[in-house]
Amino acid sequence: MKIMAKRILLSVLWTACLGIGIFAFDRIFLGARETVGWIQTSKFGEIPPKAQFFGVPPYLPRFLGWPPQRIFYRTLPSAGWWIELGFSADSQKRGPALWIGTAPESPPAELGDLIPCLREEASCPKGWHSLSVLTAGGQKIEVLTRLEAMESARLIEGLRRIQPAQK
């Protein structure tokens, strides 16, 4: 009985050693907090520079609320971010008005019905449009909007002027 207990204890120790070993290897080489895929946050400060988020859009219509209703970012498998803006409280319209982001090939699932719209304008829900713009900094930004054409054009023009991030 004593021998059996000793063998079980040694087996537990050996198993634990292997578990700790692979855990240490993983965390040392790949970092403690990195996660693959989209992460939702409520603060811009939590977005790491590796996600390549540019900050506040240079132009936003007055009737849109700020800060964004939802913020997503990711660093792996590739950098990306998305923000959702809704109408402000004093606006007559309700619900989401605008999504701005990058990495259109695999956007956050929270975009829902708007995901096919990124691939084909014809798949957009009624009233929504898909636009994209290359900034002065060389970043391609996708815009999903249900704003009026004039406001969308101003927004796109503002985004186009974004300079490369200072290193």
Binding site: G19, I22, F23, F25, D26, L30, E34, T35, V36, G37, L76, P77, S78
Partner: peptide, 15 residues
Amino acid sequence: VFARIDLWLASISGE
């Protein structure tokens, strides 16, 4: 999770 395989894959295929 001891080893995050998705993260390993992403690191291997990452730029």
